[in-house]
Every structure is written in C-alpha cells, then in structure tokens.
Simulated scan of single mutants.
Amino acid sequence: MIQEYFGLTGEPFGKEILPEHLYLSLRFKELLARLDYGVKKRYFCLVTGDIGTGKSTAIRILAQNLDENKHKLLYLSDSNLKPRDFYRELLFQLGSNPGYLRIDAKRQFNQLILDYFEKRRITPIVVIDEAHLLSHQMLQEIRFLTNFRMDSLSPMALILVGQPELKGTLAMQIFQAIAQRIQVRYHLGGLTLEETGAYVAHHLEVVKARSQIFSTEAIKEIFAYSKGIPRLINNLCIQAMLDARIQDSHVVDREGVLRAIEDFRKF
C-alpha cells in the first residue's frame, strides 16, 4: 500500500533491509569497531542498549563479516536456560553430543573450545543475547567460561548483549568477579535529531523515493517521540505514511506524525 502510493521500489522501514543498506550512525560504527576488536583479541565484551537501538543488528553484521575459516559463532538467546542446558546447547551448536550431567557437559565444552582454538586454529565466539534476563546462577556460570588453564589463556571471545539493567546487575558486589573480567564495554544509545533525519532520508533513498516525503517539523516530532530509537522510528514512519495515504497526501507533515502518535497511545 505504502510502496505503490509513494512510488517506491520496496517497503520502507522494514526489518528485511539488507545489511549493506543499513544506516550506520557514529555510535553504531563505534560499536561495530569495538566488537571487531573484542573478537580479534578474544575478549569478554558487554553490549547494552534500550530495546530497539540495534544491538542484535550489530551482532548480525558481526556474524556476516566473520571469516568462517577462522571463527565459529555460537549464539544463545534463551534466558531461561540452566547451566546444564546452557552447555548442552553450546555443544549442539559445536556439533557434539553433550553428556547428561552438567559437570560432564562443562568439561566437554571446555575441551572442545580448546580443540577449536589450538588444533583447528578457529576462534569460537559465544554471543549471549537478552543477557539482562539471565538468572544469578547463570551469570555466575558465565564467569567460568572465561577461566581457562587457571586464567592464563583466552581461547574464545564472549559477548553479553542486554538491556541497560544488565549494567546495574553486574555492578552488584556479588558479580564483581564477572565485571572485572569485562574488557570491552559499549552502551548503544539512540540517534540524535540530526541522525534521525538522516536515518529517515537514508531509508527512503534505499527504496528510491522521488521526494523527501517527511517535513522538517515531522522529523522533529518523530525524534521527540522515539528518542532516536530506530525501531520506534521505523514503526512511527510506517504509521505516518499510512496516515498520509488516508489523507490523500504525498507529504508527511507534523500533524500526520502527531495523529500516528495518538494512534499508538490508544494501544
């Protein structure tokens, strides 16, 4: 509906956008650079940010850019896993049949990680998404993931990804042993007003929009409502463009964005 009405080559502001077409803000580029550095150095990394800021997108880009001959990505996003199931899932992703007992699965995982690193010359990368939802028991278990050969070897990179409250959890005294091991940290915030305008313009350019569509005042309202969070920007832009279609207009103005915001607040 939007695509045909505005004469676009594709649906704008969708999740299906190719990585090479993503808008990369300065903050996002900084995050990618730190993740790349952390992987190369086999560091323990912490990435935090509000919902919709692009944390998982950054991990997706990281995974896409990895050399499969040199890296093995292991991705977990199940926050309800207990330690035994945690090791079992990692072993499944490594192509190994895990032992039943936690201690056996843990020993098996450690040995396999060393095998990848020392014999196959492949660096494992363990990414744990939604880490702010992990139990205290699981967070304590993660501490041991970084302890190889009495803490003298780092055969893998470990990346925790979660919402801002994860920083507060790790600041607690009982987790100091974990926090002190984190070598790369980054908090991904929202876009600035200027970046929000550039973000909207970029997404429209990707689908070959023939005009700017969104007025300057509309962009200001989008930024005020979304606080520069890309997912909220996407949703609001789509709703505002639908409103423009209903109003028989090819321009999204301030009033159209305000109507879209009002619709959001009803649900």
Rank of each mutant, 00 (worst) to 15 (best):
I2S: 01
E4W: 07
F6I: 13
F6H: 13
P12C: 03
K15P: 02
P19A: 10
P19Q: 15
L22I: 00
Y23C: 06
R27W: 02
E30N: 03
L31K: 02
A33I: 00
A33F: 07
R34D: 01
R34K: 11
L35K: 06
D36Q: 09
G38I: 07
V39N: 02
K40G: 01
T53E: 03
T53P: 05
S56N: 07
S56W: 04
Q64P: 07
N65A: 03
N65M: 02
E68L: 14
H71Q: 05
Y75K: 10
S77D: 11
S77M: 12
L81D: 14
D85K: 10
F86Y: 15
Y87R: 08
L90V: 10
F92A: 13
L94M: 15
G95N: 13
G95Y: 13
N97I: 08
Q108P: 01
L112I: 15
L112N: 11
I113Q: 11
D115P: 07
E118C: 06
K119E: 15
R120H: 07
T123Y: 09
L134T: 06
L139E: 08
E141P: 05
E141H: 02
R143V: 12
R143F: 11
L145M: 13
R149Q: 08
M150G: 13
M150C: 05
P155E: 07
L158M: 13
L158A: 06
I159P: 04
L160H: 10
P164I: 07
T169V: 15
L170H: 11
A177L: 04
Q180G: 08
V184S: 00
L188D: 03
T192C: 04
E195L: 02
E195T: 07
A198H: 09
Y199E: 01
Y199L: 00
H202Y: 09
S211T: 15
T216M: 12
E217Q: 13
A218H: 06
A218W: 01
I219C: 02
A224H: 06
K227L: 11
G228C: 03
I233N: 00
A240D: 08
L242C: 14
R245Y: 12
I246H: 03
D248M: 08
V251I: 15
V252W: 02
V252A: 03
D253Q: 05
R254K: 12
L258E: 12
D263R: 14
D263H: 06
